[in-house]
């Protein structure tokens, strides 16, 4: 359980992904894997069994390709994965709004994966393995996960921790600002990361070109997509309007 006596005011981290800027290069995925010690795919892994915290979907729309990066949406309302976990391996940090996955507690039942409408969770089907020498490149701030556990994006929780510690050292108490690896790595600057409790960022996320995927399921996703193309917006929210 997360200690609820954390200092207020809390942050509510979120993302705005500009689909008009995303060219599907996949840098975000790579940066994410490096940052979070996601092992390289097993030789036998497929697109459906590999480990990915952030996948970039390609959608054909009106003769053009649109790229849609999908990761954990850090759902903030009735988080579907959190209530189903039998052993409290999914915990929401009230200080950040981040839906944490605690691999040490995970039974590997994959009920959370079935519960997630975004299918943003990945299971360790194999023992994680790095090519010889690669262990030196592992990020010491982030633990590696065992075979048979579920993992997912946590908005680079390691980076948040580092920022928190820095802030505490400076005597600051409150929400910190930091950037996750994907946002930092995106060459097109398609990913904007911020605190939805801050009015400036919240206003951006509420812009008329912004929408959320599967909003109708009322799970309160905190990743917002943005595109100037109304038809793409509609297509991506199709189920709601059909």
């Amino acid at each position: 359980m997360i200690d609820t006596r954390k200092p207020a005011p809390a942050a509510r981290y979120g993302m705005i992904i500009d689909l008009d800027r995303c060219n599907g290069c996949g840098s975000c995925s790579v940066a994410c894997a490096v940052e979070n010690n996601v092992p390289p795919p097993h030789p036998k892994a497929t697109t459906r069994t590999g480990l990915n915290w952030l996948r970039v979907f390609r959608v054909e729309h009106e003769g053009r390709d649109a790229f849609i990066p999908i990761s954990c949406m850090q759902c903030g309302e009735e988080t579907p994965c959190q209530s189903v976990c039998p052993q409290n391996a999914v915990a929401i940090d009230p200080a950040t709004g981040i839906v944490g996955q605690i691999p040490e507690r995970c039974l590997g039942c994959r009920y959370c994966m079935a519960a997630c409408p975004y299918q943003a969770r990945a299971f360790n089907w194999w023992d994680p393995q790095w090519p010889a020498g690669f262990e030196l490149t592992l990020n010491p701030e982030v633990g590696v996960r065992q075979r048979g556990t579920v993992e997912k994006c946590n908005f680079c929780h390691g980076r948040w921790h580092a920022a928190r510690q820095q802030a505490a050292a400076n005597g600051e108490n409150g929400p910190v600002s930091y950037q996750p690896a994907c946002a930092e790595a995106c060459p097109a600057q398609a990913i904007a990361f911020g605190d939805l409790n801050q009015s400036e960022f919240a206003a951006k996320a509420a812009g008329h070109a912004c929408f959320r995927l599967l909003d109708s399921l009322r799970t309160g996703p905190k990743i917002v997509y943005k595109t100037s193309s109304a038809s793409l917006r509609n297509a991506l929210q199709e189920s709601r309007h059909a």
Partner: peptide, 8 residues
């Protein structure tokens, strides 16, 4: 079926 039966 579960990935970590010893943690049941």
């Amino acid at each position: 079926d579960v990935g970590q039966p010893l943690r049941a």
